[in-house]
Write a protein that binds this DNA or RNA. Sequence first.
RNA 1: GGGCGAUUAGCUCAGUUGGUCAGAGCGCCACGCUUACAACGUGGAGGUCGCAGGUUCGAUCCCUGCAUCGCCCACCA
Length: 1023
Amino acid sequence: MQRPGMKEELPKQYDHSTTEKRWYQFWLQKGYFHSQPNPQRKPYCIVIPPPNVTGALHLGHALNNTLQDILIRQKRMQGFETLWMPGTDHAGIATQAVVERRLWQEERKTRHDLGRAALVERIWKWKDEYEARILDQLKRMGCSCDWQRTRFTLDPICARAVRHSFFRLFRDGLIYRGKRLVNWDTTLQTVISDDEVFHEQVPGHFWYFRYPVLDPQPGDPPYVTVATTRPETMLGDTAVAVHPEPAAALDKAERELANRLATAPAKERPQLEAELAELRQRRSSLLPLLERLRDMARQGRKVLLPLLNRPIPLICDEWAKPEMGTGCVKITPAHDPNDYEVGLRHGLPMINILNLDGTLNANAGPFQGQSIEQARRNVVAAMEQQGLLEKVEDRLIDLAHSDRSKTPIEPMLTDQWFIRMERLAQMAMEAVQDGRIKIIPARYAKGYLDWLAEKRDWPISRQLWWGHQIPIWYCQTASDVELQRAFAGRQDICWRQDQDSGQWLICALEEDLPEDAIPGHRLRREEDVLDTWFSSALWPHSTLGWPDQTEELLYYYPTSVLVTSRDILTLWVARMVLMSLYNLGQIPFYEVYIHPKILDAYGETMSKSKGNGVDPVDVMEKFGADSLRFGLAYLTTETQDIRMRVDFECPHCGKLLEQTLDNRTLPRITCPHCGKPFATQWAEKPEDKALPRGPVVSERFELARNFCNKLWNASRFALLNLSGYCPAPVPDAELRIEDRWILSRLATVTQQVTDALAEYRFSEAARTLYEFAWDEFCSFYVEMLKSRLQEQGSRAVAQRLLAHTLDVLLRLLHPMVPFVTEEVWQRLADFAPERGIDRPERAAESIMIAPWPTADARRIDPQIEAQFARFQQVLRAVRDVRARQNVPPKRKIRFLVRCDVPTALLLEPMAEYFGPLAQAEPTGWGPDVQPPPLVATVATAGMEIFVDLAGLIDLEAEIARKKQELAKLQSLMEAKQRKLADPAFLQKAPAAVVQQHRQSLQSLQEQYDALQRWLTQHAQMPS
RNA sequence: GGGCGAUUAGCUCAGUUGGUCAGAGCGCCACGCUUACAACGUGGAGGUCGCAGGUUCGAUCCCUGCAUCGCCCACCA
């Protein structure tokens, strides 16, 4: 394919809209993104953290993928065989929930109305739509993924890896089925993992219930009081617990409190003292009762569970804390995690009172069929009616909610599948502990290790329809012999007896089993699907073709780095590590880079549901993809999250309106500037949707947009001045000071950027390039080339240097701003197809595949850089005087520099640049210059600059200013002198530092003297 | 309760193996459309680097405590 056509004229402003699509197509058609195993090169591979197909990408994804593309593009230029594996995640619960919600909103249907197959079909449609949108977003950002390899966690390749992993785990006894108390989401009707639960404080109550004592003996209390925040659970109570050693427990609590009090800061003391007093009070009032109850429990006494009139035992268990509540605790093993443990310890019945939809079941007796809320009210009312409600307290309750449906979690006893973590977690910990996997920044390793150290078994079954169905078939009736006969010689089938139910659990590797796989018996397939993280955990190797030993797997694995944000370090990263170690005996990646999170102006993470999410496409349409990318890289520092104020942009008048907590979820907003309404992402009603949409953008991308424009214009200057360019080596002898300076700086910057990217210091790389390109290349070098390009004699060399410097700069910038650099690269090729000042070579047909620059250490010249800094100092001083004295811009001024001979020798060759850069003309430099009578002076270290201001100067103002400066210098000098008079400093500080301070004082003294001279001289002059 | 991070100019944030590094962008002020760029140029104002101690010849940087904010994990009948 030919290079796509470019408009001949160069617009003054860089127009991203006309270039981005063109070059992306060009790259695609050239096949640059595609990677094949190539033994001649080293591999570099990143697997994308697959975005959920739940919805479109927001700025957090944009950041994640920008950083990956920067790494990938740089490594590609560095000559690695570079593969960026793209794909998306089916995100089981989240996606099904979104589709179900929409089904309900639009058609008032539940998933049961539709049935499994139809619902799954709908979700596939949703997936197709959003996957396309997501991939399009990535492409617009310029991501150089190998699209030919795009995967989806439910596609056949991933599904095969899931089946193989499950089969191996099951065969090895690492997967089991068991009754467990799980987090039940009554809305979605599925179990969710602890990690999908969030806690929220809600106002609630503390109800005190009385349970009558059965057959009270003399001295027994008539009833036992227990407190609860969930009254309805009493229907499932199977015991009341009291501490076995209440006195000892109270002593211990008291000791602990006293210890805390001893070390507590004054502020917390009153609080602690109050607690201590209360504890002592409680001891005297409650202890006899608790000890009595303890004795009763030991005797096997019972209480009567009201409403259901079920006798339940009093038991002794340490879970009942005498210092809390009433000192006694009701035990509901089937609906509370702690009670469940108690139930296991005491062999208590576990009575489930809930149906899957959150209504009460037959075990709830008269409350059957009621919702939890109804039952709660009715239970309380009934207890009150029977005189068994002692009191009610208001209280804030930390309630567990489902992250997916936002409904309160009900702990529920159900059959679930688990993975034993003991061994797997250990392996995953060791991989990080022994340094095989490096987590960057290192502080995140702790969270990873702590989480794994708990080694809690991983619940992997979900009662969903969208996902990988668990490849298990149940058979109740067959015998072991029949199984062996039916599956004789089949390596791909294994089975085990379920401990609880006694039925066979049969696992099949790749083929699904028919109902009649065992003659004379019926098999029933497990309906549950696997937790989404199960397939995500396989992502690095499943996408490369495992379980087959594909060429790709052998070549690219382990992958180079995983780039992600900290919140899924455990959920995803840890699980990838352990599954990879289990399946392949290899780590999945060498490094894990954790990048910052993007927060809104209020410090909240961005999410679509909050309404503060920003579509990167909005940002790109306004600022361009390069600006999005550069802006994000510029903000990616090691410690800070990225806080970003976002604004609505009115589609009518273009003005910005800050997004606030109040307006961010409105479906339509009326622009306060022009009074016209526009739609937001929340628009659903037809009349809202018909309005033009107001995109959400952030002014934090302006810096990057301006930078791209600056780069564009510097390039534009180059292109306008390269006609007649002729490549040739430039010998050192032909280099001028400014050339040696820019080449030295270029080499330094090359090294700095290369190092920064190697260590994931994106912000530093971006800042280094920003400053070099703007403050050095544009502000000085290009300015100084202007006159050289005008003159025939110097033009050719100047062109070679210009082309070369721009060429290197473009390559260094390309990973961050791929589009504008390619646009310039291509145009540059028209004038200067061969570039370089040592040995000019033909430039690559695309900057994407041009070699990454290497720092030429030979060019680094600190002396020249220091000398050039001198020149800049003089220039700044002259400009300063001009501005201060309000010298009209076109008026030329003259100046002298009093300095030593070496400095004068340096300044000499720069003389001609003071004209174009400062409208100034040097009339002499050296130790013996004679300043004219009326001058403005600037004294800097080692130099005194006199600007001739005859007829221009505002003497009064200048004198006032000088006096101020004098005072400032004086205080600086005094501080210095004090320091240099301090024997401790002289004795202990390194000699070099002392010397530095001496020089510094001397220089201050010179400046001071110069000012003094000027003041004495001008004080007598008539103004 | 445990852990992690932050606190620097009006705003958003860099920075430091502890010694002229107190910086950038935006905003503000003054002057300029000078033949790459007003999305620009030149110059300027603006900060006892959260507070209090400590270590050190020397602390914005290291240590301790405190305050405020954010995040993660655990947990409260």
